[in-house]
Design a protein around this nucleic acid. Structure first.
Length: 216
DNA sequence: AACCAGGAGACAT
DNA sequence: ATGTCTCATGGT
């Protein structure tokens, strides 16, 4: 069983996921930071608060006081930390000029720049690269590790970069990578939420037979 | 009523 | 390099 075949099964089972939820690249980037170890519905509440206060723009977030920003972020949890992270991200964005200016950087450089921002780690950087900048990077998250560990295809404790390169290599033709990586990560999360949780619910899972044959 | 969620940074070893 | 602690709200 290859990662490509798993993708086919997931896509057949769930269909297109239409990721990332968000109207603009900037909103997608904000969501990527706010969803760190946090359920998405809580992030939507926080984003609604930002929009209601006309604060869904880098200049506004950079200008507003952290204490006030934190009150808007409250529903998404870790609000004090995330207020700082959003501000440092927006400062970086403004220093670079704008989203369009950053779009001219090549992917390795842009990734390096993102990782240098306080509060942006490997997964958040790759969320932003893939879903806001349409770059061919594969996002590795807790669900990715869990699902593929249970499938017996990885050990689960590999380093982030090891797994990222493993998924990125040979999964799709060059011009299809962005579309496939986009859909694949969304499908993994969808599948993870429905069935492959900490306490799995394998009864109706579309990968159940694959998992069972891996249990040896 | 614990348990968990679309992680990352600080700090110790 | 690798492991542990902290951060916090809301749904199940």
């Amino acid at each position: 069983m290859t990662p490509g075949q798993i993708y086919s099964r997931l896509y057949r089972a769930y269909g297109p996921q239409h990721w990332w939820p968000g109207d603009t690249p900037f909103e997608i980037m904000v969501g990527a930071i706010l969803t760190q170890n946090t359920a998405w519905p809580n992030v939507e509440r926080a984003i609604s608060n930002l929009r209601a206060n006309n604060a869904l723009a880098p200049q506004r977030i950079a200008a507003v006081h952290v204490r006030r920003l934190a009150t808007w972020l409250k529903p998404s949890g870790y609000f004090n930390i995330k207020a700082k992270r959003l501000k440092s991200f927006c400062r970086w964005l403004m220093a670079a000029g704008c989203v369009h200016a950053l779009g001219k950087l090549d992917t390795p450089l842009l990734r390096h720049q993102l990782l240098a921002v306080h509060g942006i780690g490997p997964e958040t950087a790759d969320d932003i690269l893939l879903y806001a900048f349409s770059r061919p990077v594969f996002v590795i998250d807790a669900y990715t590790r869990r699902v593929f560990e249970r499938l017996g295809m990885i050990a689960g404790n590999e380093g982030y970069e090891t797994l990222r390169h493993w998924f990125e290599s040979g999964l799709a033709k060059e011009r299809d990578k962005v579309r496939v990586f986009n859909e694949y990560h969304a499908l993994i999360v969808r599948h993870g939420k429905d069935y492959c949780k900490v306490r799995p619910r394998c009864a109706q899972c579309c990968l159940r037979t694959v998992c069972l044959s891996a249990q040896v």
